[in-house]
Amino acid sequence: MAEHNELGKKGEELAINFLIKNEYKILEKNYRYLKAEVDIIAQKENTLAVIEVKTRATDYFGNPQDFVNPKKIKLLLSAIDNYVVERDLDVEVRFDIIAIIHKNNTTKIEHLKDAFLHF
Rank of each mutant, 00 (worst) to 15 (best):
M1W: 11
M1S: 14
M1P: 14
E3R: 09
H4G: 00
H4N: 05
E6F: 13
E6I: 07
L7P: 10
G8E: 04
K10S: 06
L14I: 05
A15P: 05
A15C: 02
I16R: 05
I16M: 02
F18W: 06
L19S: 01
K21T: 11
Y24T: 02
Y24H: 04
I26W: 04
I26Y: 04
E28R: 09
K29P: 12
K29Y: 10
N30D: 09
Y31N: 07
Y31T: 03
R32L: 08
R32S: 09
L34W: 03
K35D: 11
A36G: 04
V38L: 01
D39H: 02
D39A: 02
I41P: 10
Q43A: 05
Q43W: 12
K44H: 05
T47D: 03
A49G: 12
R56Q: 07
Y60R: 09
P64T: 05
Q65W: 15
Q65E: 15
F67W: 11
P70C: 01
L75E: 03
L76V: 05
L76D: 07
L76F: 12
L77T: 01
S78K: 13
N82I: 10
N82V: 09
Y83N: 04
E86Q: 15
R87M: 02
D88Y: 14
L89H: 03
D90N: 13
R94G: 05
R94A: 06
F95H: 09
D96Y: 09
I97H: 11
I97W: 15
I98A: 03
I100E: 06
I100H: 07
H102N: 15
K103W: 10
K103H: 15
E110P: 13
E110I: 15
H111K: 09
L112K: 12
K113R: 14
K113I: 11
D114S: 12
D114M: 04
A115F: 13
F116Y: 12
F116G: 13
H118N: 15
